[in-house]
């Protein structure tokens, strides 16, 4: 088991944004985390990545209790993430953005230089523009690609993707699904938060559904999506596309 969450709780004042979530992910798995808007998905990822400290519960990585560690420490332990709203470093160039992940996030390895990691990550996401482009000149989709390259450059073992596919065209969706599978094939375990069910169906082996911070279902994507509780939770939800 590479990752386990046990009874994770995160409160914002009176609001239970994450309420007693538990699940575990096996090495090499692509695990989906879905739920309606405001369900607490991003908050949960923040608890895993160290951006937020859970109020209760434990986060376990490779059998080690890593609950409440700082984000920079989690990164060094092999957890990388992309952001729901990708806004990396606007006044750095594309190359420098990825360099940040490669220099500070990756474990020291004398065989692979930071430069190698940058090249590899940018090639891997097939970044379409010049590396000298300042990030502030990129559009939303290009920023997502850049954010992914930055996260990959730090050689993660567990990658957290927060709505990476939002705003993509159908063609780009296929490409991103391909990319996600290729990342997994390199031995990286992935937890993916996504509203686009096509992506979830296409790549995930297992998913959990959360609603109002609580886990309401867990299992294979097709089974879970026919679960009456899940259908009810998504009733009236506009952003979802089955």
């Amino acid at each position: 088991m590479i990752f386990e969450a046990e009874n994770v709780v995160k409160n914002f004042g009176g609001l239970k944004a994450v309420d007693n979530i538990s699940f575990s992910v096996e090495e090499g798995e692509i695990f989906g985390l879905i739920g309606p808007n405001g369900a607490g998905k991003t908050t949960f990822l923040n608890c895993v990545a160290g951006a937020l400290k859970p109020n209760e519960g434990t986060v376990i990585l490779f059998g080690e209790d890593v609950t409440g560690l700082k984000p920079e420490v989690m990164c060094k332990k092999g957890v990388s993430r992309t952001f729901q709203i990708s806004r990396p470093f606007p006044r750095l160039t594309v190359e420098e953005n990825v360099e940040v992940g490669a220099i500070f996030g990756a474990p020291k390895d004398h065989k692979i230089t930071a430069k190698n990691r940058v090249d590899e990550a940018l090639d891997f996401v097939k970044f379409p523009l010049s590396r000298e482009t300042p990030a502030e000149h990129l559009n939303a989709v290009q920023l997502k690609r850049l954010d992914l390259a930055r996260a990959l450059a730090s050689s993660p073992k567990l990658l957290l993707l927060d709505e990476l596919a939002a705003g993509l065209t159908t063609g780009e969706l296929e490409e991103i699904m391909d990319l996600i599978k290729k990342i997994r094939d390199r031995g990286i375990t992935i937890i993916i938060v996504e509203h686009i069910m096509k992506v979830i169906r296409g790549v995930c082996e297992r998913i959990v559904v959360i609603d109002y911070g609580e886990k309401i279902a867990e299992g294979k994507p097709d089974e879970v999506m026919n679960n009456p509780k899940v259908i009810e939770a998504y009733l009236g939800e506009k952003r979802i596309s089955f």
Partner: peptide, 24 residues
């Protein structure tokens, strides 16, 4: 040096900088 890169990353987006392993 790489200190400069860390400074600029922290100055432009502290969350992304920390998530990339920079100790603020």
């Amino acid at each position: 040096s790489h200190y400069g890169l860390a400074f600029r990353a922290l100055g432009q987006n502290i969350d992304a900088a920390r998530a990339s392993g920079i100790n603020p």
